[in-house]
Amino acid sequence: MTPTSKKRVMMGFASMTLLFGIVLGIILWGGFNWSLAMTNTEEFCISCHEMKDNVYQELQETVHFTNRTGVRATCPDCHVPKEWIYKVKRKIQASAELYHKMLGTIDTKEKFEDYRLTMALSEWKRMKANDSRECRNCHNYESMDLEKQQSRGADQHDPHVWDAMDGKNPTKTCIDCHKGIAHHLPKGWEEAAKKAGL
C-alpha cells in the first residue's frame, strides 16, 4: 500500500467513526430527552399507588385541578423545573425516590403520613431556594391585579407587588405563605417549618 492510500483509508475510517458517533449521539440524546418527557407527565407520576392514593386524591379537591378558567396544574408543573439543566438535576434526585419506592419506604397510608413531613420540608426548601420558580411559571407578582383579589390576599401581596414592579427583589416568595396549596399538610408542619426557617 502506498502511503497516500493508507492515509485515505485512515481518513475514511475517521469520518465513518465520526458519522457513527453523531448518529449514536442523536439516538441517545433523543432517547434521553424522550425518557425525560415520558417521565414528565401526570400519568407517570401517579402510576405508582403511593402518589395516586395520597397526594393525587388531595390535589383533585383544589383549585389547581378544576377551576373557573379550566387551566390545570399537573404534578410536573409544580415539581419539575422547566429549564433543562434544573430539570436534569431534579430527575437525578428522583432516582433516590425510585430507590425508596423499591424499599417500600412509603408504601402504606400510615408510612406515607409518617414520612410526609420530611418530604414536605424538602419541597419547601427547594421552592424557597428557587424563589418558587415553578409557581412563577404560571403566576407573577407583576401580573396581579390587586383590585380584583379578595382583601385578605391583596393586603399580603401589596408590598411584594410594588417591589416587583420597581425591579426590587420581593422579600417573600409564594411558598412562604402558600404551604399546603395542593395537598393536605402533615401534622406538626408549622413548628417544623418555623424551626427550619421556611
Binding site: T62, E113, Q150, R152, G180, H184, L185, P186, K187, W189
Partner: peptide
C-alpha cells in the same frame, strides 16, 4: 367575613389556626 372553601380542618391540620 371571607371565603373558606380552601380551608381544611382534620386531625393533621387546621388551616384556620394558621
Amino acid at each position: 367575613p371571607h371565603d373558606i372553601s380552601k380551608d381544611r380542618v382534620s386531625l393533621q391540620e387546621n388551616t384556620c389556626i394558621r
